Amino acid sequence: MSDTAAAPPGAASPTVPPAPSPRTRRRFTVGPLPWILPAIALIAVVVIWPVVTMVITSRERLGLDGFVRGSAGWKNFTRLFGETVFGHVMLWTVIWTVSVVGLTMLISLGLAALFNQRFPGRTVTRWALIAPWAASVLMTSIGFRWMLDRTSGVLNGWMVDLGLIHSPKDWLGDPATAWPWLIFVAVFVSLPFTTYTLLAGLQTIPDEVYEAARIDGASGRQSYLRITLPLLRPAFLVGLVINLINVFNSFPVIWGMNEGGVNYANATTTVFMYGLKSQSIGESAAMSVVNFVLVLLMVLVFLKVSRWNEES
């Protein structure tokens, strides 16, 4: 007896779907590749190729004219680590990154909480906060540089007129007075992005959660610590990791204000890398490789410690 029963008389015979054509099967096999291929090509050209070129250059002996004179092996790295200011530059980079990112995140938390409230003029103040972000970072740095200038800066003029100082000071020439101003400007230009990132996170928290907490008798401080901060964690981590990368690699602020100071007194690894190109392109390339590895390790450690992919 047949496994399939015969169709009753007059009933329509079941239709069998046609087999997919070779072209259709090929399309299913390729899948989403045509859609992501432009992004992959862009990453290969903008990220992978420069990194590979950077690593190759760091192991070459180049003249100041840019022509390759032969292989240098690891000599560029040896000379780099032997630089007398290398340790100081690394230490200042750590201090710079921790100070700027820490102050930026702390102040942005307060500003985001403020802008999340309803008060007269909130729209105007929100737009005003965008100004440091909309302006060029280099232009802002040069503006502060002229403001702090020893001979023609307005800050010295005001402070002398008010009797706060007896004579004009070279604020950016002395490393001790330069680093607070450098950190201030870096925080100033970093606040808009971080504040708006945290503000977006605050606005995703439902009001019903706070209402339930008030009914349960929670104070404002308890609500902030046990509701706001845990639910703000995703936005906070995004702002933190982007600030870590941006501040670590920051160049316009330091270079625009005092070019790293005398003998790289206020230089980070990025500014030091740029300064090395005038004496050795290979050594500068070696510093860029070290910089890339440090950023990569910093981000990996941060993602591991913060458990960014875990729910609160």
Rank of each mutant, 00 (worst) to 15 (best):
I183V: 15
V154H: 05
T270L: 00
G153T: 05
W255V: 03
A176H: 14
Q222H: 13
A212M: 09
G239A: 15
S152C: 11
N263T: 07
R145L: 07
Q222D: 14
G256D: 02
P192Q: 04
G220C: 02
A212C: 08
R145C: 02
A178C: 07
T269D: 01
I254S: 00
S141F: 04
I254F: 02
W146K: 11
L276F: 05
I245K: 09
V253L: 02
S250F: 08
I165D: 01
G157V: 03
T228K: 09
L225V: 15
I227F: 10
I205N: 06
I165M: 08
R214A: 14
M159P: 01
A218K: 15
W133M: 14
W146R: 11
M159W: 04
S219E: 08
I165L: 00
V154A: 12
L225I: 15
Q222E: 14
F144E: 03
L240R: 08
L276W: 01
M139D: 11
G217P: 07
Y264I: 01
T177Y: 01
L276S: 08
S152V: 15
L237P: 06
S190E: 04
L199P: 11
L199D: 12
T270N: 11
L244Y: 05
G217I: 02
R150E: 14
D170M: 06
I165A: 03
G260H: 01
F248C: 03
P180N: 05
T194Y: 06
T270P: 05
L172H: 04
Q222N: 13
L164K: 01
D170K: 02
G217R: 10
S223A: 15
T269F: 03
D174A: 11
